[in-house]
Amino acid sequence: MRAQETPAYSPTDPARDTAATASVAVGEIRTGLLRHGASLTTDATERLLDLLPGEPVLQSRRPIDHALSPDVANGVDCNVLTSNGARVHTVGTVLTHAAITGGRVLQTSTYARIDPAGSRHRRSWAHYTARPGRLETLGRADADELAAGFAALTGAVAPGCLDVGAVCERLARRLQSSPLLDGCPPIKSQWTRTRWTALFVSKHDERAVPRADFVLYDENVRTISLLIPYALRESYRLGAVLELCRDLALHDWVLTTLSQRIKRISSVSGDRTRAVGELYPTISHLLHLWMPGARVEPQLARVWDGFERQPGFTRQWNTSVGWIRDQLSLHTLQLLGGLESNRTAG
């Protein structure tokens, strides 16, 4: 029946694929601490992230251990909300992968590129499986409105509307329950959710690219809205954009977690044993993770530079690390002082 639609040697129109119609990519990243007492070994990381037979886990060692799983696909046929409240029917697959940084931080990320000029009717499923990570709207939609609508959705997702967060949460839960992990994370910490959108802007567009807006909502919800040069859309896996978003989400998580630790350490500072007990894992498990922009493509590095100027991620990081080190010195001093007075007493 469907052979009429796609005859055996039917052309796909490559011109349509590269035409400068605006397109948008959306996704969500969940970032949290791996449920493991020590830094996860390269070997265990490889096994944990081996999500798809026949696909490699990509590992790198400089400037920090980093591993990336292959993408697994999920089929969806649902609505996406635009900024003006319209529901746009989309069909296709979203991709999900996991990354581990420093053997410590787990990120799961689900994403898709939305092509806003899909056919009027749903096509054969083979059409979508041939384009993993792509959603097509049924009927035309406006890329800007799609991006804005997705970014605006920071609370619960309405039933029937695309829920990328749930997809990456499922992978996160599955990995965190893996027998490869010992189940004893060194500190208590929270997960953050980072929703992001990337609007690919053509040369003729007046807007300056790349551009990024980072919004912190409550404790754990963030959004990143990106304007990206159109050329970067071409990379098959949106690699550069995903890398940038994961990097931002990762460092935001480290910062968030560190400030939560500081709050906690301050609250128990009267009790030296407890305070030191809280300080140690903070120092040995969090402080080495700060490597902003480590894997970000040169074309997008400007985004990080911007965030360094305002609000100054690294500035806040340095201040926090300084505070922690001071606390440790203080407690050590007090401890030595205690020993000293014991000795004079004895």
């Binding site: 601490l33 449920r35 839960r173 965190q176 329950s177 189940g183 994370p185 208590k188 929270q190 997960w191």
Partner: peptide
């Protein structure tokens, strides 16, 4: 339920 407990254990004492 197990997943929920695991998740809460990551955060809560």
């Amino acid at each position: 339920c197990t997943e929920l407990f695991v998740k809460l254990d990551e955060e809560f004492d």
